[in-house]
Simulated assay, not measured.
Amino acid sequence: MSNDEPAREPVKEDARIDALEARLAAAQQREEERNRPQASGADANYRSGNRVLADLLGGLLGGAVIGYAIGFFTDTNPWGLLVGLFLGIVVAFRNVIRAANRRPGE
């Protein structure tokens, strides 16, 4: 062996390595497509359910707080609370009905 020759010959490209790299690239692409967030009908239904729940709770709690405050300041506390709760329930159901009649694309 002479000094200008390398001790080992460089490894040639192997067809198996090329095939493995192609399979890895394809698997990574499939994995990215699978993990990409997609807007599906289930997500829209989940958001719609949360909206209905928020409308109901907001109407009830808002009506109760406002009714109690009005009853406290006017010294008609049980009636102010009841009227506020009733109005909160009416507003909550009106919002739920409006959301139910809305088309999905709107």
Rank of each mutant, 00 (worst) to 15 (best):
V96W: 08
D18E: 10
L60T: 03
N101W: 09
P37Y: 15
V90E: 07
D18G: 06
G63W: 06
L24F: 09
E13T: 06
V11Y: 10
G62I: 12
L53E: 05
Q29T: 06
E106N: 07
V90M: 11
R98E: 11
N95W: 03
V65P: 02
Y46M: 04
F86M: 09
S2V: 10
S2N: 14
L61C: 11
N50K: 09
P37W: 11
A99E: 07
L24W: 08
V52K: 12
L85C: 09
R98I: 13
E32K: 11
N95V: 07
Q28K: 06
I66C: 08
N101E: 10
E5N: 07
D14I: 01
R103P: 03
R94Q: 09
R23H: 06
T76I: 13
G58K: 03
D75A: 15
E13N: 04
A27G: 01
M1Y: 12
I89H: 05
V90D: 04
Q38T: 08
A42G: 00
N45A: 02
L24M: 11
M1E: 09
A92I: 07
T74R: 12
D75Y: 09
E13S: 09
A22S: 03
A39F: 02
G84N: 00
Q38E: 12
A99C: 01
V90Q: 06
D18H: 08
A7P: 01
L24C: 08
L57A: 13
W79A: 15
R102S: 12
V96E: 02
G105A: 05
D75H: 15
E21M: 14
R51M: 11
N35L: 15
A100Y: 15
G49Y: 04
E5V: 03
A22F: 07
D18C: 03
M1F: 14
E31Q: 14
R34S: 05
D55M: 13
Q38P: 01
Q29R: 13
A7W: 13
L82D: 05
F72W: 12
Q38I: 01
A27I: 07
L81D: 01
E33I: 09
S40H: 04
R34D: 04
F93S: 08
R36D: 03
Q28W: 03
Y68F: 12
D55V: 02
A92F: 11
I70K: 03
F72Q: 07
E31M: 10
S40Y: 00
N45Y: 00
L20E: 13
L57R: 06
N35W: 10
E5R: 11
L82H: 05
A15F: 09
G41V: 00
K12A: 07
R23G: 02
R103G: 11
G80D: 06
R36H: 10
G88S: 11
V11I: 13
F72R: 14
L61A: 15
S48P: 00
A25K: 10
R102D: 11
D18P: 00
P37M: 07
R30Q: 10
F93I: 07
M1N: 05
R103I: 02
R98W: 10
F93D: 03
Y46E: 01
F72Y: 14
A44G: 00
R103Q: 12
A25T: 06
G63A: 10
A54Y: 15
R34A: 14
S40G: 12
L81I: 08
A39S: 03
R36A: 11
F73C: 01
R103A: 12
G63E: 01
G58N: 06
I17H: 14
G41F: 00
L60Y: 11
D18I: 13
S2T: 10
R94L: 15
